[in-house]
Amino acid sequence: MSVNLTLTLVASVLVGTGAYLFLSRSLVRALMGFLLMGNGVNLLFIIGSGPAGSPPIVGAGDGGPMADPVPQALVLTAIVITLAMTAFVLALAHRGWQVGRDDLVADDTESARIHARAEADDLGSEPGAREQAEEIAAETERSERGHHGRRDDAATDEEGGTA
């Protein structure tokens, strides 16, 4: 099977840029990445369906080879699904902005707490361990509070602005 080079290149650029954006910590950027990757993969179906042809409707073609209709039906379904997922992620991003004034994925505080405790345990037998452990715990808490603090400030600003 010969493969359409242009389509292949476009698909790989879409998936590549999409993957880059997907790695972002910002939810909206990651969504853009998902959309780009999704479109790249949709192109993959078109590439896989072989060369273009006349419409796959009996009597409508010019007698030449018909295009394969199955991948097009699949891509159509995939596009609809992507649309639904996009709608949900946008709603989620909006909600995240409402409650947190932030688009970035926050840290998992429970994991951070257990990590801090494990570090404290490792330091257990050494002199000055207690101080170090407390320092780590305080640091964790500070970084959390810093995060929330920033949000509170933003929320206050917003309220001040609308009042």
């Binding site: 099977m1 998936v15 999704g38 993969v41 993959l44 179906f45 590439i47 896989g48 369906s49 199955v70 991948p71 699949l74 995939a78």
Partner: peptide
């Protein structure tokens, strides 16, 4: 998964 399906169909 979707990419795998597309490649499977192509192959």
């Amino acid at each position: 998964f979707l990419a795998a399906i597309g490649l499977t169909y192509g192959a």
